[in-house]
């Protein structure tokens, strides 16, 4: 007797919840044979704005967590990814990957998450400075998260592109709204489930599915988004994003390197989304003896 398989409903991930798009719109994801794999949420501007509100609400809590705690949470994400490895591999195969390529992608994604977990409580030490000013002051500079980051993730990969974008952003204490690959959206939803079961506070990462062509103007013109990261190569979109960024002086980063390149594991992706803050304080002088560093 054949058993009827239970199919998964693919939703979006906002504020630690899994709503459908408020717009009620969807697009059908098909395999090479033209069979419908799933109906995917065609997220709207309103979904993005809701996600941004969730990201902003989560921002100060996430950035003020102990760096060590953030490291543990990113490591926990990697642990759960590892445990659900087979699910991601089969999802990638369904979306057109060979089984060997699928395995490589999932393993790279897990390792990249572990890599950035390690940086959570180290990049501050590497990129901070005590500055030896000429006057009698203690002066130091430290990186602080830029804030809320809007991301248009890699189109060509379903999982690795998401992990590559999200890990350095949250390792540095930022929160984000991410638009997943339009043509390979399945892992986005499953990865959201991983995030949701790994002690990551709701709202730190929000993932929506849909069209970059429709959403890039809304991502880049939102006045409460501090930075934008773009992993695709549409020149017209890049130009519009950079133009809209000027509305509130958003920081814009366009990353063109192949997502599978090992150079994506480096702390400069963290520091791109950090602001250097410098603090001054006088040092007491006793008699004529000046103190300094």
């Amino acid at each position: 007797m054949e058993r009827l398989e239970i199919q998964k409903t693919y939703k979006i991930f906002i504020g630690g919840q899994f709503p459908r798009t408020e717009s009620g719109r969807y697009y059908s994801l098909k395999n090479k044979k033209g069979e419908v794999l799933a109906n995917i949420c065609q997220s709207s501007r309103k979904d993005f704005r809701n996600a941004e509100v969730a990201a902003r609400s989560a921002q100060s809590g996430w950035s003020s967590r102990a760096a060590f705690n953030r490291a543990q949470i990113l490591y926990r994400v990697a642990e759960i990814l590892e445990g659900r490895k087979d699910q991601f591999i089969s999802e990638l195969i369904v979306q057109g990957s060979s089984s060997a390529a699928a395995r490589v992608e999932v393993e790279m994604a897990i390792d990249r998450m572990v890599y950035y977990s390690g940086w959570c409580d180290k990049f501050q030490q590497v990129f901070s400075a005590v500055n030896p000013v000429a006057s009698s002051h203690f002066n130091f500079s430290v990186p602080e998260p830029t804030g809320v980051v809007a991301v248009i993730a890699d189109e060509k990969s379903s999982l690795l592109g998401l992990v590559t974008a999200i890990a350095p952003i949250i390792a540095g204490g930022n929160t984000c709204v991410v638009l997943a690959s339009e043509s390979k959206p399945l892992c986005a939803v499953t990865f959201s489930e991983v995030l949701n079961t790994s002690d990551l506070p709701g709202g730190v990462v929000n993932i929506i599915t849909g069209s970059a062509q429709e959403l890039h103007t809304h991502f880049s013109s939102h006045m409460d988004v501090n930075a934008m990261v773009y992993y695709r190569d549409d020149k017209a979109q890049i130009k519009t994003i950079k133009e809209n960024a000027a509305l509130n002086v958003k920081r814009v980063f366009v990353y063109k390197e192949n997502i599978f390149s090992e150079d994506h594991a480096n702390p400069y992706y963290i520091t791109d989304l950090q602001e250097i803050k410098t603090t001054w304080h006088p040092i007491e002088n006793i008699g004529s003896a000046k103190a300094g560093y």
């Binding site: 500055n131 000429a134 002051h137 803050k277 410098t278 603090t279 001054w280 006088p282």
Partner: peptide
Amino acid sequence: KAGVVWANTYNKFDPVSPFGGFKESGF
């Protein structure tokens, strides 16, 4: 949310001390 914070002092500058803003004060 500011790039330079002066505590118990103000308007101090030095070549070794990074200067610049958050938000719409630039990058």
